[in-house]
């Protein structure tokens, strides 16, 4: 179940010039949120923008009754959101979508993120049990664009960073380190979120090595709750040589990589 709420922003931090972390007081969302789910945020008046913006839940503090979203300013909506301050109210729907499948039986886990895709992974790591070993693979364009590295190192067993220009960590794409590590690592689950080409590559690598993989997809949304059918992605139809369009907002955003057809 989810709802529409007018909640209060209790904290707002700038993580990078264009990335913000917003803490929102919401008893309902903080206590019901699961990693992989998102909230649908009204960023401005109807006259400025009609649609809500989907943003992943990046953290939930059940005791304080707050949850966090972390967002990068991309356009009008996220730009408006960046102008909000602690004390302002915010119109928010959630928690929405299908969460990551987190099974305690998985002991050795890889988490692969790039761009805005790293934010939901923070919540995922936070909700994992201490008995699970986790390695995070995060990709950035260059060293000065790295965010949340401390938070990730605190929450996982090992953090691997790749930068495209080699200014920090491995030089190249994060998928290359994953591919190099897979033969020696005994991962039983990969979780990934990020740009579509990265997801496609990670899914392919997972398939080649026979590791289960869950991907969190992005698509432009309308309603965010499964009625308008605008947020489609191609998925396989079981037992048939056929496909259909599934809804990223309701059937996802998290899917098994083996169910997705990447274009």
């Amino acid at each position: 179940m989810s709802g529409v709420f007018k909640d209060k922003i209790v904290d707002m931090k700038m993580l990078r010039e264009d990335i913000f972390r917003m803490t929102i007081l919401s008893e309902y969302i903080s206590s019901n949120a699961m990693p992989g789910q998102f909230v649908h945020v009204k960023c401005g008046d109807d006259s400025e923008m009609l649609l809500r913006r989907p943003i992943s839940i990046a953290f939930a503090d059940r005791e304080r009754k707050t949850f966090d979203i972390i967002f990068q300013v991309k356009g009008k909506g996220t730009g408006h959101l960046a102008g909000k301050k602690a004390g302002d109210s915010i119109d928010i729907m959630g928690p929405l979508g299908k969460p990551f499948d987190i099974s305690e039986s998985n002991k050795n886990i890889a988490v692969v993120g790039g761009g805005i895709g790293i934010f939901p992974l923070l919540f995922l790591l936070n909700e994992m049990s201490k008995s699970q070993r986790t390695v995070s693979y995060l990709g950035f364009r260059s060293k000065d664009l790295i965010v949340l590295a401390d938070d990730f190192s605190r929450l996982c067993s090992r953090l691997e960073i790749a930068t495209e220009d080699g200014s920090e960590g491995y030089k190249g794409f994060v998928t290359s380190i994953l591919e190099n590590h897979l033969p020696s690592e005994n991962f039983d689950m990969i979780y990934t979120c990020g740009p579509a080409p990265m997801l496609k590559k990670v899914s392919k690598i997972a398939e080649n090595f026979g590791v289960l993989c869950q991907v969190s997809l992005e698509q432009r949304m309308g309603c965010g709750i499964g009625t308008c059918l605008v947020c489609s992605c191609k998925t396989k139809v079981k037992d048939k040589d056929d496909w259909k369009y599934s809804r990223v907002c309701k059937d996802g955003p998290v899917f098994w990589s083996s169910d997705i057809i990447f274009d």
Partner: peptide, 8 residues
């Protein structure tokens, strides 16, 4: 099936 995304 409908049209390919983006649809909005």
């Amino acid at each position: 099936k409908g049209n390919p995304p983006p649809r909005i």
